[in-house]
Write a protein that binds this DNA or RNA. Structure first.
Lengths: 336, 336
DNA sequence: TTGTATGCGTTATCAA
DNA sequence: TTGATAACGCATACAA
């Protein structure tokens, strides 16, 4: 493996000049630059990243943390993040943390030890349940060392930047539409108490209140997980579920509701309207295809990487938090 | 940030001793070890990975390459790989290459420049279409530097190791069952000519041949992509498609067939049996739920990481290629 | 515009 | 069992 000394010798210059050519950090005469570049190409030389890192303390690597990459929303996010980061010259270290605090902490520590240039947390689970500061302390700690970005979660603090979807308005809007079309017993199904889930719930409750409808506890259905069959069976187990609409926080949950309706012989959307979330392939695969809120994950990710680039390049200030609008993708499980 | 000198000073020993304690590379008296460890814990010291890498030329990082992480099969693979690699002390650099050769090459180069300890290619796209050696040359080149592992693809060469699913037998078995249950016009739908797709096709053709049935070209349907609606619409466009069974290389394709049947009023499974592949959530979300071949991606990934660990720890030889059995998950789109 | 010398924080070799 | 010191390959401050 050739090193910078070899290149310098072959090009008849000093290592400093080679370094300058590679990094463009100082003036080098066209003639010598060409000569050096020629040798570099000829020898197929690439700088040793460890030696580079030892001096500069960076390896142009971003740490991405997701709870589970098998989740369609997460894998889409990682896809867009990786693509955008790659475009600006960063590689990604991906790590799946699960949902437990100790694992989130441990994985954060490991990434920081690798001297990643920044951390991106994907998913509102990282913002905690809003119960205590303690559950997000690891994020503030991490932000002492590198800029931290959170997708779909809000944590306040220095060097912490959030990009979130406007879930409140998205749900508010769809619930309002359901009400306007005559629905009165609208259920809200959620499998989490995360930041994002709380936003969606707020949109739901606000819409009901603004329409002078009661916010009834029995219509707020909490799920242990977003598994299709689990949701279906849970609903089947209810004695008297008299809902005429279901707003859910994930397409898989909506799919569970759809299967419940099928088994019970309930017509969708006539007797039961269903709204999914994330506008994933699950909504398209369903029969009938599911109306779903699209939170524009691609936009969220590209915006996040833009903001990251601004911070890391030191080219200016950015907002601590920005919000991206959602849109409703109407399909066949609603009729408004 | 504390360095090894600080620890040495605080512990009253030399940096060599601190290094020995950290790496366990040589005898250190219990007394000094304890003292050193105490100081390390107290100061929260962790070695600088760049300096370590500069000496050892490794950062305990594995490069994972996938064409697209949004594919459910891929994201599942990455999930299990990351989990298993993490357990044996490796972090993962993930990169999405797409399906074009130049991008595969470029991403490979980038990972090698980061001195990853090994490369894992996920998906048979990396094994090429079997047309020329040229399309897999980048893998052999990479294998000159680090061990290379391929999931669901076969490339021969030194330092190259494959873990594949037994797709030939899986498809052979399911097609044989279809034939036994009276199906005669069995279509095979594929969106690729990759190693894995060729294996599946071989299983299909072998089963037909062994049953003395003709292998008819018009039943081998090639798709440009595995998009649900695309598949559905393509089939709708056929003048006279007289198939009574469809074996597909992905659940999303099976879903497209199912939607085609629905629109055409064809009963499933009575008049058209459908078999998916990968046993993903798409098969469960469908209505009726789709019979699907499960290629046990978790087993494949865990086995791959075991093999990787054997190679990297230098603890022995491993087979160039190993095969994992598939199983059929019967659901409602078949009746055998 | 170019070259020299030093520091970065480890690991590993060699003495002690 | 321990310590001193030389790599490791680069960036950069300083000199020329």
């Amino acid at each position: 493996m050739k090193n910078i000394y070899d290149i310098a010798k072959l090009a008849g210059v000093s290592i400093a000049t080679v370094s300058r050519v590679i990094n463009g950090t100082a003036k080098v005469s066209d003639k010598t630059r060409e000569k050096v570049l020629a040798v570099i190409n000829e020898e197929g030389y690439t700088p040793n990243v460890f030696a580079q890192g030892l001096g500069t303390n960076t390896m142009h690597t971003i740490g991405i943390l997701v709870p589970i990459i098998t989740d369609i929303y997460m894998s889409n996010a990682v896809y867009y993040l990786e693509e955008a980061l790659h475009e600006i010259g960063y590689d990604c270290i991906l790590t799946c943390t699960g949902f437990h605090l100790d694992q989130k902490e441990q994985h954060t520590t490991m990434l920081l030890e690798k001297h990643t240039d920044a951390l991106i947390y994907v998913g509102s689970t990282y913002a905690g349940k809003g119960e205590s500061q303690h559950e997000t302390q690891y994020i503030r700690d991490a932000a002492e060392k590198v800029p931290v970005f959170i997708i779909n979660g809000l944590v306040e603090g220095k060097n912490i930047y959030s990009t979130v979807s406007d879930d409140v308005n998205a749900v508010y809007s769809v619930v309002s539409s359901l009400i306007k079309s005559g629905r009165r017993n609208i259920a809200f199904l959620s499998d989490s108490a995360s930041y994002s889930a709380r936003q969606k719930l707020a949109g739901y409750e606000n819409a009901l209140s603004d329409a002078m409808l009661p916010v009834r506890g029995e219509y707020r259905i909490h799920l242990r997980k977003d598994d299709i069959h689990y949701v279906r069976d849970l609903l089947i187990g209810y004695r008297d579920l008299d809902i005429d609409a279901a707003v859910t926080v994930a397409d898989s949950i909506a799919l569970g509701v759809l299967k419940y309706a099928k088994i019970r012989g309930i017509s969708v959307p006539e007797d039961l309207s269903i709204v999914g979330y994330n506008n994933s392939v699950l909504a398209i695969g369903a029969d009938p295809e599911i109306t779903s809120i699209d939170n524009h994950i691609e936009d969220v990710c590209r915006l996040t990487v833009n903001r990251l680039n601004t911070v890391l390049s030191g080219e200016g200030e950015i907002e601590p938090s920005v919000c991206v609008n959602c849109t409703l993708k109407k399909r066949c499980t609603t009729d408004f």
